[in-house]
Design a protein around this nucleic acid. Structure first.
Lengths: 186, 186
DNA sequence: CGTGAAACTTGCCAGTGACAAGATTGCGCG
DNA sequence: CGCGCAATCTTGTCACTGGCAAGTTTCACG
């Protein structure tokens, strides 16, 4: 598994990000320990600092990766707004660790160039789905509609992840999300 | 301000919660330091443990307080679903520290009895607003509608707090929320 | 081959949460 | 009135964390 050569790990940056993803899934993004990541990767406790500077740097890289994955997921369901919303919720549940980092900007460098670019790609994918549906409406309407669509999908995803939803919604996030999101497009 | 008598502070529990609220507003719920709270209250570093057990215990108390405040805010706008949604967003922005703790169950004891009761009161206030509006519809519709209303309000609030919304939404959360929430009740 | 930079290590410091044991205080009960 | 006991708070300690500094190993490139 860990093909660790002594010194010059070779792919430490990627290994640390993978370990971080795993650790975030286990203990949440706030309780992440750089020293734990170093142990998982089989390197010394100060090695992560060399690649990411500090904890915020590492989480910045993770968030940027996450936004790119989200953009990709949204693009694939681009033609259908409802399906894009379902894809959004599905992403949050399936890639929970990414999602939890992405929307906790106090944990990373929100002004990082790469992150901003990735976030922009995800936002564009979202907006293009709304624009396709609302057709030739005024831009202001598209703005408001995409905000509403984003809000309801994001809200449902967040509540789902927080375990705040009542039991009766079931255990299938895609299905439950579809029922709720449909309320918007009537 | 801090009317500290030596030993037997008299109101340490309340003082610590107030300090915690302030600290969470400054550094977020995850970076909260019990020792810092103790310093703010003018007591020793181990005093908080006596009242709350550990950090999770303190955040549990804070979350329970928050859910009660939210229930109160929602009840006051009970007759109008749109206004209840606006009140929800307004609560999140105005009582940001509470809100941020309430929906991070990994930081506190989600099985605490007092917390569950408070959360139940908030949920009931939310559902009663939806039921009042949807009139005599089937219960399943009310369920789905309240989920949708909760999702869109919660999503907008969360995105607002995360600073994820584009600049063009302006700086007035109530107004911006109203425009978005209206999309649901057409 | 050899030199300078990149990658990684070791060692350290201040800060944190949790626990244990002791000091102080006030309250109920005789 | 006073005495014992429990609640409250303190002091001391331990393992752990993030970040910094300085040293060591390896690689890339001339």
């Amino acid at each position: 598994m860990t093909d660790t050569r002594a010194y010059h790990h070779g792919d430490l940056r990627r290994a640390l990000l993978a370990a971080a993803l795993e650790a975030v899934g286990e203990v949440g993004p706030a309780a992440l320990s750089l020293r734990d990541l170093a142990r998982r990767a089989g390197v010394s406790h100060a090695a992560p600092a060399h690649h990411f500077g500090d904890k915020a740097g590492l989480l910045t890289a993770l968030a940027a990766q996450g936004f790119d994955l989200l953009a990709q997921a949204l693009t694939e369901a681009d033609d259908d707004l409802l399906e894009a919303g379902v894809a959004y919720v599905d992403f949050a549940v399936t890639h929970r660790a990414y999602f939890e980092v992405m929307f906790r900007p106090e944990l990373y460098r929100a002004d990082d160039a790469e992150l901003i670019a990735a976030r922009g790609r995800a936002g564009a994918a979202l907006r293009s789905g709304v624009a396709a549906l609302s057709g030739g409406g005024a831009p202001a309407d598209t703005d408001r509609d995409s905000l509403a669509a984003w809000s309801i999908a994001h809200g449902f995803a967040t509540l789902w992840l927080a375990g705040a939803l009542p039991d009766r919604v079931g255990d299938n996030p895609r299905e439950a999300a579809r029922a709720v999101l449909r309320r918007l497009s009537t």
